[in-house]
Design a protein around this nucleic acid. Structure first.
Lengths: 341, 341
DNA sequence: GCTCCGGTGTAAATCGCTTGACGGCTCCGG
DNA sequence: CCGGAGCCGTCAAGCGATTTACACCGGAGC
């Protein structure tokens, strides 16, 4: 009536316990004949290894811990969703499992981030889009635990990271808007991440290089959750203080969608009066009215690479990682030439 | 240099290994004095129990397995996101972990759903919004493993479930549209779930009860992923075949958003020409143009209850579960009186 | 003086699997 | 005929906890 164990299988086909274990782990020391016999027995008996026991004995939990920031209902966020989907799929291919954790205040205060590793709950930790305030991650600089930042980095820390190329994004956005003729562009930036700050700064320099004046490139913070609400509020401030803006560049698509709503509520039209563009290319971007021009970030692929890298780091087949993925401009309907004045 | 184990702690404060374990598990057999001494030592030494070892010995993984359908990038779906957030939060409060799995073809073919339980990877499985085709779940009818359907049910199976009240949703939607004066209403239904079918059928009867003719309530399937694209296509069909519709009721908000885009592309206005409403009240619903009228489903709360229930089922403190949560109408801008003809 | 007993703590068996050391066997060259 | 090298398996010691049965001890009751 009980679940069969490795012992039952061993007894059943007259080999030792270790033999069964070796078969389970595809060890070449076992001959094909024996292997086949054992596998057959396993199948017949409906044997399945107990994951806890394997993890205990092998010192590998075959689990990645994915840590996301403490935002409202973060799992409902497409940005994280895409990355997490990528991680999940790659995990499966490696027969790994994925555990999700949220970096809430308790998580940080109680130093859960190190507890997870110390209690052997995971082989490696992936931090998705942490913020500039996550100074506590510095602990991982010289920790023995495998660790990877996903779509973020810290300028002065020696931490593994993998992310998309935010500076290239910024250049593409600048080229596009400047190319259309815009010279006064408002920026809605997320400033709670280094990537967000890089994006803002790179955008400003790229515009200046192409002939804009710095004072015609005002920026406002979009709030720390990069949400539509934040974009709405930021756009209201921008348009209030600079009614002559002809374009708004938002740090992500949701900020852009919020901004579009604001423009709409002021009785203006996108893109006739104000052009708006975002970043990420979330699925929703194609279904706004008008459809959103944006920079496509390969977030799903980023997740896959991240999972791959994490496993390699754990196995010590990789010592460090500092990787940057390319991005791409997607032109839709929300950007156009500035209105004639 | 190594992580301390329960043995090290025992040696350190001169008690037996079992004593430390009992302290760890808050067993009242240990006196306050000893308990304090042990806890102090643990703290000082930075002891943390090895989760694998505990799970092996105690036969509880303290893990819930959450299974979501195999949709494109499902983690990026707000509907699932909300439910999963609720589950996660409640798990944490119970010191449980949450594992995510996707019910893809491999998952079903290889009967992973039973393997997860048999390999002791999880204490209980939660299936979120499975579809009418998931006949394989019937296996759980008389399985010894704790199991819970979240926001779905099967009419002829004896399975535990917890979900929102789709029939009440349908009645509220019907009352609202009929109350505004609509008599010809197109329906975009998700028909790959029993809850979706219930919703459609309950809506039709509620309308008929209030004086509509059945032939004025055409319905079209919105596609199995309940996406904006599906809503767009369905709306095109509906409006093509029934140009005199004055309202469209969609089975969820994303279908509704797709339908809105279709109406817009035909040069019509919402709600002046066509009223549109959705279901769920995802955050985005407040930020469409015009803002979407919808039925609020308490998905986050549903997730919390589901996690709670799952743990009780595992502990056998609960034998079964058939729970239904109430819903609420949210009126915004996308519905209004029908155009005068 | 002896038994019974509640309150504390311990010993030892288990949970199910991994893995490095070792051992028998066959085959080969010298 | 002996020694060494592969090949194929087995032994047995962990991995780090839980848990049940039992032991000790001082005091109450008779």
């Amino acid at each position: 009536m009980k679940r069969p164990t490795i012992c039952d299988v061993a007894r059943e086909c007259g080999v030792s316990l270790s033999t069964v274990s070796l078969v389970l782990n595809n060890n070449p020391r076992i001959s094909e004949a024996t292997r086949a016999r054992v596998l057959e027995a396993m199948d017949r008996m409906g044997y399945l290894p107990n994951v806890q026991a394997r993890a205990l004995a092998s010192r590998s939990s075959r689990t990645l811990s994915v840590v996301v920031p403490h935002l409202n209902h973060v799992f409902a966020d497409v940005y994280f969703g895409e990355i997490v989907s990528g991680i999940y799929d790659r995990c499966l291919e490696h027969h790994y499992r994925m555990m999700l954790d949220i970096a809430n205040p308790r998580f940080v205060r109680q130093r859960e981030y190190v507890n997870i590793m110390r209690s052997r709950r995971a082989d490696c930790m992936l931090f998705i889009a942490s913020s500039v305030n996550d100074e506590y991650l510095r602990e991982f600089e010289d920790s023995p635990f495998p660790f990877l930042l996903v779509n973020h980095y810290f300028p002065n820390m020696n931490l593994n990271y993998i992310m998309v190329d935010y500076r290239q994004s910024a250049r593409l956005a600048a080229e596009h808007l400047i190319g259309l003729g815009h010279r006064k562009i408002g920026i809605i930036a997320g400033t709670n991440t280094y990537t967000g700050r890089d994006y803002r700064d790179a955008f400003i320099s790229a515009c200046c290089v192409r002939g804009c004046r710095r004072e015609d490139l005002p920026w406002v913070d979009g709030g720390k959750d990069w949400s539509q609400e934040g974009g709405f509020r930021a756009a209201r401030i921008l348009l209030g203080e600079h009614p002559d803006l002809t374009a708004i560049m938002a740090g992500n698509d949701r900020l852009a969608i919020g901004a579009m709503r604001c423009v709409h509520e002021r009785g203006l039209h996108v893109p006739q009066d104000v052009s708006i563009m975002g970043v990420d290319d979330i699925p929703q971007a194609a279904y706004t009215t008008p459809a959103l021009t944006t920079i496509r970030h390969p977030l799903y692929e980023l997740g896959r690479r991240a999972a791959e890298t994490a496993i390699l780091l754990f196995r010590e087949e990789l010592q460090s990682c500092n990787e940057v993925l390319p991005v791409q401009l997607v032109v839709r309907e929300s950007t156009g030439t500035p209105p004639a004045r």
